[in-house]
Amino acid sequence: MTSPVNEFLAAVQARLSADAGLVALVGASGLRDRRADRLDLPALVLGTVETRDYSTASEAGVEILMTLEAWSATSRREAEAIAAKARVVLGDAPPMLAGAVLVSLRHRRTVSRREVKTGFFAAEMAFRAVVELTVE
């Protein structure tokens, strides 16, 4: 079995990429797994990912703390609109995993800011996922 974390991240990326409304906001190349210095904006980028053991006495599991960053060169409003759409997309139909069960995927918070050095705007969303590993 592949890593449940990598499988979860791939499923999230696939879910976001499949939404026409989100792609319309950021463009076809606007969904990335990292932010490059010369990234075309607007964009939605995978930020930090932290994993923790979340096993119980009877089930193996992992907790995944993930951030998604919505970036805009134009305005905070645009960054917040991208973030809002991403939250809806991930909340409407949680990504399906093979070899694991996504128990929950919850939005924890969103913090928006203006980057001083670049002048770009970012809305950083924090999510918490719990994945139960299945026995093969």
Rank of each mutant, 00 (worst) to 15 (best):
P94Q: 11
E80Y: 02
P4F: 04
L46M: 11
T67D: 13
R35F: 13
P42V: 08
R87F: 07
E132N: 03
P94T: 05
T118C: 04
L39P: 00
G21P: 00
L65K: 00
S72T: 10
V23D: 09
E50Q: 09
T134D: 14
M125K: 03
F120A: 03
M125C: 13
S29M: 10
A60W: 06
L102V: 12
K85E: 13
R128M: 04
A129L: 08
P94V: 12
R35P: 02
G119N: 04
V45G: 08
A60D: 11
R109V: 14
L105K: 01
L22H: 07
R77K: 08
S29D: 15
V5Y: 00
T110M: 15
Y54W: 13
L46P: 00
R114D: 08
Y54L: 06
G91Q: 12
T74S: 07
D37P: 02
A28S: 11
R108G: 04
T48P: 01
T118K: 06
T2L: 09
V111Y: 11
S17Q: 11
A24S: 13
E63R: 10
R114P: 03
V12N: 01
L97C: 07
V23K: 07
R109C: 11
A126L: 12
A36R: 10
V89P: 03
R106H: 10
T48E: 11
T56P: 07
L22K: 03
V49W: 07
D92N: 10
E63C: 00
A129E: 03
M125Q: 15
S3E: 03
L46V: 02
V131M: 05
V101S: 09
V103G: 00
